[in-house]
Nucleic acid binder design. Sequence first.
RNA 1: GGGGGCGUAGCUCAGUUGGUUAGAGCGCUGCCCUGUCACGGCAGAGGCCGCGGGUUCGAGUCCCGUCGCUCCCGCCA
Length: 599
Amino acid sequence: MHRYRNHTCGDLRESHIGQTARLSGWVHRVRDHGGVLFIDLRDHYGLTQVVADPDSPAFKEAEKLHSEWVIRVDGKVRKRPEGTENKELPTGMVEVFVSEIEVLGPAAELPMPVFGDQEYPEDIRLKYRFLDLRRERLHNNIIKRGQIIDSIRRRMKDGGFFEFQTPILTASSPEGARDYLVPSRIHPGKFYALPQAPQQFKQLIMMSGFDRYFQIAACFRDEDARADRSPGEFYQLDIEMSFVTQQDVFDAVEPVLRGVFEEFGGGMPVTQKFPLIPYADALKLYGTDKPDLRNPIKMQNVTSAFAGSGFKIFAGMIAADPKVEVWAIPAPKGGNRAFCDRMNSWAQGEGQPGLGYIFWREGEESGAGPLAKNIGPERTKQIADQLGLGVGDAVFFVAGKPKDFVKFAGPARTKVGQELDLIAKGKFEFCWIVDFPMFEWNEEDKKVDFSHNPFSMPNMGTEEFLALDAAADQDKLLAINAIQYDIVCNGTELSSGAIRNHRPDVMKKAFAIAGYGEDVLEAKFGGMLRALSLGAPPHGGIAPGIDRIVMLLCGEENLREVVLFPMNQRAEDLLMGAPSDVTPKQLKELHIRLNLPQK
RNA sequence: GGGGGCGUAGCUCAGUUGGUUAGAGCGCUGCCCUGUCACGGCAGAGGCCGCGGGUUCGAGUCCCGUCGCUCCCGCCA
């Protein structure tokens, strides 16, 4: 007999009746009836009911047990008495009549129970993460995460990709997020940085002739947290391919994601062919570059219906500035005053002066609400016709410069969808967002910046791009798109990628436009530049976020529910106590003196 | 760095217009109970009402500050 077990707690069936079983596990729950006592014994594999009564030599021992003690039990497997079977449990036809109990690991009083599904505060859950991980929900999420990653690896390898490991201690990069720094002992005053992503490495792998790279890569960014953004570290399915166009990347990645979502999505339908939506269209239609396509609402430009109209606020704005537009958010089935007022007060809560609306109802087929009165029936009908709205429907309006109001229009569209229950649940709606602008205007510094990734290829002829004059062609610069793309699923940005800039001359030009001299480029990307100038293949890739994929597939709203040992929102690991003080000796070795902020 | 929400027993929460001794459920402890599987019953322990200040005859309740948690903005090539 094995020291601890000859079966797991998920094993025993009727076929084992009569055998002697040795099980080890956690006391999940004790039900003490005085004369008879039930112990639900739990391990990773399942739950088995262990029974003791006064005839059992272990009865006295059994009465002392508490939840979450780790024990070993020996006993006879027997059929449960007629009518007491538990069909909910795979082991529910049998029970183990205990003859011996050995306590392997007693437990003190628990700060949170494993049994049951009561909500517990985050700080307690994180401090006692190992208890939380014993609970069914987290335990299953973590298992599912592992299975998803297995499936991704298999699919990538089947697609001809090869897995690489890249350095964790690397050099700080000037663009992007704040780096995590690691001081060098050997080089006083110098620092390694943890990679924000293996971006340069994966490109160098392509320049090293390997052709198809992937990695489940740890990424480190010193950024503040969100519900869907871990502080500190997260994982990406990092992908790079040589001799590819944007379409080749899509063709390689789409089946992997679709397959994984079909495999683990619980039967929920998945977009079969991901639509391509240009960035500019996404903003116009959905007010965001990560639209939730489960929400059917599409916004439209209705500026002409308000220009010169009797609604002086909008008409005045339009007359004063040619950049001002009015966008309509249609709200089918929202045609009642209560809903429109609710939206209006929601908008005020968002810091807006209000939310103009028109609605149509029986008896007021030509439009109800103050706005309709102001602009008159003809213009109201123009709006109704353009949006295909009628009695029972409503429409809301946002006005101003689109650049300024999209941040409100997007959430307003989402709010209308939620309030009217228009968002289709139970499916995964994917799309590609393409044609991101290469540069953007930095109002603060009065200069042109990279708008996303400095390594993206501008979508413009090489000669034409090289001929650009950074000062004179500013409008032209801001109109250039990069060959860059995002994958969005149900309103969550899953990934970002690009066809890379593999030409050193174009690279130098792009950095010059953003105000970086060749010296900066040389100092910060010297290795990369060398590689680009010694025979670089055209290449591109993408990097879907593993944590977000798992989050969507587990139906969780928060990344901490799908990460084994997450940090809290302030980037602290409450279980391990990180970050922590270090000894003066350690600091001395690293040539570091602390200069702490005044309290 | 900024804004919103929350903070009452170990946990989830209730607590009226400011008014006697702050409650319930779960958990915990003890006792009873031979077929439960969210077992049941009885009894009990457990509270600086986050902290500090103020208003008031009187504050869990109102005001100010502060701390913590959380969500968001900034930030996220």
